[in-house]
Design a binder for these strands. Structure first.
Length: 264
DNA sequence: GCTTGGACCTGATTGC
DNA sequence: TGCAATCAGGTCCAAG
């Protein structure tokens, strides 16, 4: 999509998680995507019209790319699917389709010059793979925080872009109990945690993401990081370190997998 | 002001 | 076999 003009947009319903912004199609048709980037879990397409096209996959959203020319991001076969909600006809002949069964994803438009003021971005924490993220940063962010570290790491205003799987994995790798209050974790543990968070994210990107049920890359391929899960979705299985059974608990409505022996 | 839990929506899996 | 209950990767917002 980068560098290409959006020739045609088809929205097949009035809303996803939220209604589409007013005159959505008219506002983006004809615009060129000058840059395609990301902030946390939000995709940001910078448009020549001066607006940013913000897209979120929610939990089950995915993009597929089909076009005449085979290549890295092209499908040979177009699949007509029930949950195809937005179709972009791109300059050059490619068709980019947004599909989302659960419709927790959404699309929005916001002035590019004011992108930092887009409500979810305003006050959002640093990227875990950025230079600003460190043990020292976590120490400051967790100061006096009385919430369990698991919940604190899922808070996008503490650190941006971590989801349930990667928080579980990073806590396991750093030997930190998910129930430990964020403000009570010692500095050396925070240092270790910050390093493991970065490593988990980098490894997951390298592996092409995690395929649990419906994640695919734009080429329809599956991610492979799920084969490297050390605790996530392994309830009852032996801990890879001490062989005691992996436990599961629910925190803030989300499943947490951990080893009660190795994580303190 | 901070934290928690329900709601959003659909599909896959599990248990009766 | 068929139906109901439960659970799922994220985020927002009302209630506590």
């Amino acid at each position: 999509m980068e560098g290409k003009r959006i020739l045609r947009v088809e929205t097949r319903r009035k809303n996803l998680r939220f209604p589409f912004p007013e005159n959505f199609n008219q506002r983006i048709e004809g615009a060129r995507i000058t840059r395609l980037g990301r902030r946390a879990k939000y995709l940001v397409g910078e448009l020549s019209s001066g607006e940013a096209l913000i897209m979120h996959l929610g939990m089950t959203g995915r993009f597929t790319v089909e076009g005449k020319k085979p290549g890295k991001f092209h499908h040979e076969v177009a699949a007509a699917e029930k949950h195809d909600h937005v179709v972009f006809g791109m300059q050059g002949g490619a068709t980019v389709t947004f599909n989302d069964a659960r419709r927790f994803g959404f699309m929005d438009l916001w002035p590019l010059a004011d992108i930092d003021r887009y409500p979810p971005f305003d006050g959002m924490g640093p990227e875990p793979i950025s230079n600003q993220f460190s043990g020292a940063y976590l120490a400051e962010a967790f100061k006096d925080k009385k919430t369990p570290v698991k919940s604190a790491l899922l808070d996008q205003y503490v650190v941006a872009g971590l989801g349930n799987i990667y928080v579980c994995e990073a806590l396991f790798r750093s030997g930190v109990s998910p129930t430990k209050l964020a403000g009570a974790i010692k500095r050396d543990k925070l240092e270790k945690l910050s390093i493991e968070i970065r490593k988990v994210i980098e490894e997951a990107i390298e592996a092409g993401g995690s395929t649990i049920s419906d994640f695919e890359t734009t080429t329809g391929e599956l991610g492979y990081f799920q084969h490297r899960f050390q605790v996530y979705d392994r309830e009852g299985d032996a801990c890879l370190i001490c062989t005691k059974p992996v436990k599961r608990l629910v925190q803030s409505g989300r499943s947490t997998f951990y080893c009660g022996h190795c994580q303190r």
